[in-house]
């Protein structure tokens, strides 16, 4: 179903509200993100896609929402005393480095294999509104 933009009833019957609310009495949450976190990825023609076009962005591991936390092997943010978790200092990795690491070729720069895997899992879990998400989304285009 396509939403009717500008329809005054839209706020009451948007399918998104219906789909996502577990409890119909509870209002849906809206994630605001941050000023600097872009919310748009534009679809480009696949055939004109060159590796250079989206590879100039970078992704911090972790973003500000992970301040003071460690990264578990599955990519979740955990308290720094969690056994088997990896320290992170918000270092930014280039899209190119991440792309190579995701395709299994290399580890992230300066990270051991296990740490690199944990960081990549963190990147895979990025959601809209978190730093680096749009960069990760645009990486889908060049893989």
């Amino acid at each position: 179903m396509t939403d009717n933009i500008g329809n005054p009833d839209a706020e009451n019957n948007s399918d998104k509200q219906d789909d996502n609310s577990v409890n119909p009495n509870r209002r849906r949450m809206l994630m605001m993100g941050a000023v600097a976190t872009s919310a748009v990825v534009t679809v480009r023609p696949a055939i004109a896609q060159t590796s250079g076009s989206v590879l100039d962005c970078d992704i911090p591991v972790a973003g500000s929402h992970g301040y003071g936390k460690n990264i578990a092997p599955d990519g979740t943010l955990v308290s720094p005393d969690t056994e088997g978790s990896f320290h992170q200092d918000g270092r930014r990795y280039t899209a190119n480095n991440i792309k190579q690491a995701l395709s299994g070729g290399k580890s992230l720069k300066g990270a051991s294999y296990d740490k690199s895997q944990a960081y990549l899992n963190y990147i895979r879990r990025l959601r809209a509104g978190q730093s680096g998400f749009t960069c990760f989304a645009s990486l889908q285009y060049s893989r």
Partner: peptide, 30 residues
């Protein structure tokens, strides 16, 4: 405007371009 999950699709007939937009962008448009 088509909602999918935490992202939505926005197709612009005039330019023929599809944008994939994250919250809160679709809600702002509405």
């Amino acid at each position: 405007l088509q909602h999918l999950d935490y992202m939505s699709l926005l197709y612009d007939r005039q330019s023929g371009i599809t944008h994939i937009i994250a919250e809160p962008a679709p809600q702002i448009i509405e």
